[in-house]
């Protein structure tokens, strides 16, 4: 197993009453697999993703359980250990493509950043070459041009592609995509999903795809996890979940799809 999560609990202590946002969640992810996490807003999907990527804040948060990545514990690992994995073995892209890139740095510089950190011996030309390849891998037209641009010169969809390119530059084994399409137009959403699908096949990279859009998850994922209020309520193959949901919460989610699609 690439990733094994056991009894993950996350509790925030920044208010008088502690707030448990993830509760005893266990699941695993095999190499090259695409796993979907669905659930309504506030169900703890992002916090689970943050815990895997080592991005939970340092203060006022209590975390329990284990996150094993290729057999190494990440949840309670030291910062230095975590940094070796971040950007190198695990890449992550976020819900907010408009603000996730540094506005005053060139795209190329940002795409190459993980290489500078994790492959310090690589030559400048090699880095540049890789970055431009990565930019064309994510189907950005004129990658040489994009390399020199600043984030504000790109659209939301293009920025999300840049984010994918920079998350993938070190060829990580796991890409976490936390609602990568929520902020984008419907047509762009589909393109990004297809892109992730292609990259998963070509690079043999596992994807943890988080969304509250069941129709996207159904299109993309091999297996699905359903979360509700910090609990993992159901998991199974995409087919099982859609054809034979056991929990009524899952049924409600599925029932909501056609109505939404009609609206679109």
């Amino acid at each position: 197993m690439l990733l094994e999560i056991k009894d993950l609990s996350i509790e925030f202590h920044d208010h008088d009453v502690p707030e448990r946002v993830v509760h005893d969640v266990s699941f695993s992810l095999a190499e090259g697999e695409i796993l979907g996490i669905v659930g309504e807003s506030g169900s703890g999907k992002s916090m689970t993703a943050m815990a895997i990527a080592g991005l939970l804040k340092r203060h006022d948060v209590e975390k329990k359980g284990t996150i094993l990545f290729e057999g190494t514990e990440l949840l309670h690992a030291s910062r230095a250990q975590l940094r070796k994995v971040q950007g190198n073995d695990i890449g992550i892209i976020f819900q907010e493509p408009m603000t996730s890139l540094n506005p005053v740095k060139r795209i190329g510089w940002q795409v190459e950043e993980s290489l500078r950190i994790h492959r310090p011996d690589m030559s400048k030309e090699e880095r540049r070459h890789r970055a431009i390849t990565a930019l064309s891998d994510v189907e950005l037209p004129n990658p040489e041009q994009v390399y020199k641009k600043y984030p504000h010169e790109l659209s939301g969809g293009m920025r999300q592609r840049v984010m994918i390119a920079s998350a993938m530059i070190c060829e990580p084994k796991l890409l976490i995509a936390d609602e990568p399409t929520t902020a984008l137009d419907v047509t762009i959403q589909l393109q990004i999903v297809k892109l992730l699908q292609r990259l998963n096949k070509e690079k043999k990279m596992a994807v943890l795809f988080i969304s509250h859009d069941l129709s996207l998850v159904k299109r993309l994922c091999d297996r699905i996890i359903v979360m509700h209020n910090g609990d993992l309520v159901e998991q199974g193959s995409a087919q099982e979940i859609f054809e034979n949901p056991k929990e009524c919460y899952t049924k409600e989610l599925i029932d909501a799809i056609p109505r939404l699609e009609k609206l679109v």
Binding site: R83, K84, G87, N88, S100, A167
Partner: peptide
């Protein structure tokens, strides 16, 4: 800001 989270996610200290 969000770009700081991105920077940490790449392994920056």
């Amino acid at each position: 800001k969000d770009y700081v989270r991105t920077a940490y996610s790449k392994g920056n200290n």
